[in-house]
Computed example of a mutant assay.
Amino acid sequence: MYVVGIDGGGTKTSIALFDITGKYYGTQIESYPSCLDSKSFEKTNPQLEKSIIKLIPPHSEEEIVLSSIFLGLGGIASTKDALFVESLVKTWKICKESTQIHAKNDIYCAHAAGLRGKTGMCFIIGTGSVGFGVDETGNEHRVGGYSPMEGDPGSSYHLGRMLLKALAKALDLRRSYSPLLTAVQQHLHIHGYTDYVNMINTISREETAQLAQLVTQYADVGDKFAVKLIERATDEITLMFHTIYQTLEIHNKQIAIVGSLGNAKSKYKEILYQKVKAIDANYEIFPTQLDPAIGSAILAFKHLQNENYQNFLPHAERK
Results as ranks from 00 to 15, higher is better:
Leu272Asn: 13
Ala300Asp: 07
Lys275Arg: 15
Gly262Thr: 04
Tyr273Ile: 08
Tyr273Pro: 10
Phe301Arg: 11
Gln289Tyr: 00
Ile279Asp: 12
Pro287Phe: 00
Gln274Glu: 09
Ala297Ile: 01
Ile279Arg: 14
Gln289Thr: 11
Leu304Arg: 04
Gln289Asp: 06
Lys265Leu: 06
Tyr283Cys: 06
Asn282Arg: 09
Leu290Ser: 07
Asp280Gly: 14
Tyr268Val: 05
Ala297Gly: 01
Val276Ala: 11
Glu284Phe: 15
Ala281Ser: 15
Lys302Pro: 02
Asn282Cys: 11
Ile271Tyr: 08
Leu272Tyr: 09
Gln289Pro: 04
Lys265His: 05
Ala293Cys: 05
Lys265Gln: 01
Ile279Ala: 10
Ala293Pro: 15
Ala281Leu: 09
Lys267Trp: 04
Gly295His: 00
Ala300Pro: 02
Tyr283Asn: 14
Pro292Phe: 00
Thr288Ile: 09
Asn263Gln: 09
His303Asn: 04
Ala281Phe: 02
Pro292Ile: 05
Asn263Ala: 13
His303Cys: 00
Leu261Met: 10
Val276Leu: 04
Gly295Asp: 02
Ser296Pro: 06
Ser266Ala: 08
Ala278Asp: 14
Asn263Phe: 06
Lys275Val: 02
Tyr268Asn: 13
Ser260Lys: 01
Ala293Arg: 08
Lys277Thr: 15
Phe286Met: 15
Ser260Leu: 12
Gln289Met: 08
Leu299Gly: 02
Pro292Gly: 03
Lys275Pro: 13
Leu299Tyr: 01
Asn282Leu: 13
Glu284Arg: 03
Ser266Glu: 00
Ala264Thr: 12
Leu290Ala: 08
Val276Asn: 04
Leu299Asp: 01
Ile294Val: 15
Asn263Trp: 05
Lys267Asp: 04
Asn282Phe: 08
Tyr283Thr: 05
Lys275Asp: 08
Ala297Lys: 08
Leu261Ile: 04
Tyr283Lys: 15
Lys265Arg: 04
His303Met: 13
Glu270Val: 03
Ala278Arg: 03
Leu299Phe: 00
Gly262Tyr: 11
Ala264His: 07
Leu304Asp: 08
Glu284Gly: 06
Pro287Trp: 14
Gly262Ile: 08
Tyr283Gly: 09
Ile294Ala: 07
Lys275Glu: 10
Ile285Met: 11
Pro287Gln: 09
Lys267Leu: 01
Asp280Arg: 06
Ala293Thr: 07
Thr288Ser: 14
His303Val: 02
Phe286Ser: 12
Ser296Asp: 00
